[in-house]
């Protein structure tokens, strides 16, 4: 009950942030460009078309009125119309969202599956050779230009070794599984279609690793430093004094404590991963929102760019909320 109350409070707290997010996107799309009408109309539009847009979008009216129109549109799920294909941006994003979600979730899984053990290992082998190697690995991670890493991975694993496919979610000759979740890895399993699953897995490995490396490094660092802090606490000595084995002490007693900061970072990283998807999807020809937005940038499809920005911000804010909730569940000391 108290947790529910807490969640509701956090939800209420989100309202002003969400409002701020829409205002910011509105300012970026309506107030910064010299002429928003010509931005919305696109670079190739005739002057007449621009004037039509100006009228139909009410861009000649005061900014407050414009914001209200913009906000009511948002509430109805209207993000404007793409210049490239004249489809509603919402529909486009909805089509591309599952691919991005699948990629981000796969990266997140890699982050956790690799990052947490590495962090723990570095903490218990603190200042020894293992720790130094892991530190170098993570310094490279946080300093890596994602797009360049992607190219290098392609060059090695696709071009030279030929081990992994170079683009897309599936081989072109294969038909995607029937859409349930939109995530090929899950849909193919639901269908019981093993070859599709393997093929999809093969395709996602490189982009998922590429996208995860930066956050992998961040998570490794957080786990390491929080484990070191926790392992220095008195209750760890207590656990030792009562005969618990090192494995139980590290993996149960210390780890549950260090989960609190780890969850915070992980949740925030998921939002950042969506941002990183912009670059990764472009490199690996992954048909998600990130590739969509870069294609939009190239044709200066302004409404599409703004739609993407807003959706990512919403996901980010939602992840923040989720982190707060998990935090409350994990940390008994929190005041509801």
């Amino acid at each position: 009950m108290r947790v529910l109350h807490y969640v509701l409070r956090r939800l209420a707290y989100m309202v002003p942030v969400l409002f701020g997010v829409t205002v910011l996107v509105f300012i970026i799309s309506h107030a910064i460009p010299g002429d928003p009408a010509s931005m919305i109309a696109g670079p190739k539009a005739s002057r007449e078309a621009v004037e039509n847009i100006r009228k139909s979008h009410g861009l000649d009216r005061p900014l407050v009125v414009q914001y209200l129109t913009f906000a009511t549109g948002l509430l109805k799920g209207d993000l404007g119309t793409s210049i490239r294909n004249h489809r509603p941006v919402t529909a486009d994003l909805a089509d591309f969202f599952p691919a991005t979600l699948e990629l981000t979730l796969a990266s997140m899984t890699l982050c956790l599956v690799i990052g947490i053990p590495l962090g723990i290992l570095a903490a218990i082998r603190r200042n020894r050779i293992t720790d130094h190697i892991i530190r170098v690995f993570s310094v490279f991670g946080v300093s890596m230009p994602v797009f360049w890493l992607g190219l290098m991975l392609l060059f090695v694993f696709y071009r030279n070794l030929g081990w992994l496919p170079g683009s897309g979610r599936l081989d072109a000759v294969l038909t995607p599984p029937v859409q349930v979740t939109g995530l090929y890895l899950i849909d193919s399993l639901l269908e019981g279609n093993w070859p599709i699953f393997v093929n999809a897995l093969w395709h996602i490995l490189l982009p998922a690793f590429c996208l995860s490396y930066v956050y992998l490094a961040i998570i490794t660092r957080i786990v390491r430093s929080s484990m070191i802090a926790v392992l220095g606490q008195e209750f760890i000595t207590t656990a030792r004094a009562y005969g618990l084995s090192e494995a139980v002490i590290v993996l149960k007693h210390a780890f549950k404590n260090s989960l609190i900061p780890t969850v915070t970072i992980t949740g925030l990283s998921l939002g950042e991963l969506m941002g990183g998807a912009i670059l990764t999807e472009t490199i690996f020809g992954w048909p998600g929102m990130g590739k969509y937005v870069v294609d939009s940038v190239n044709s200066l499809d302004f409404p599409a760019i703004m739609g993407f920005t807003l959706v990512v911000a919403l996901v980010y804010v939602a992840m923040n909320l989720l982190v707060d909730v998990l935090y409350a569940v994990l940390n008994p000391r929190i005041r509801y």
Binding site: F235, A239, R240, A241
Partner: peptide
């Protein structure tokens, strides 16, 4: 490990920090 907590046990100065806060 069989001696600790079993044949010999120990209590500490800081009751605040000698118990694990998340269990």
């Amino acid at each position: 490990r069989t001696i600790r907590g079993n044949l010999v046990s120990m209590i500490f100065q800081e009751p605040m920090s000698s118990l694990n806060p998340v269990f």
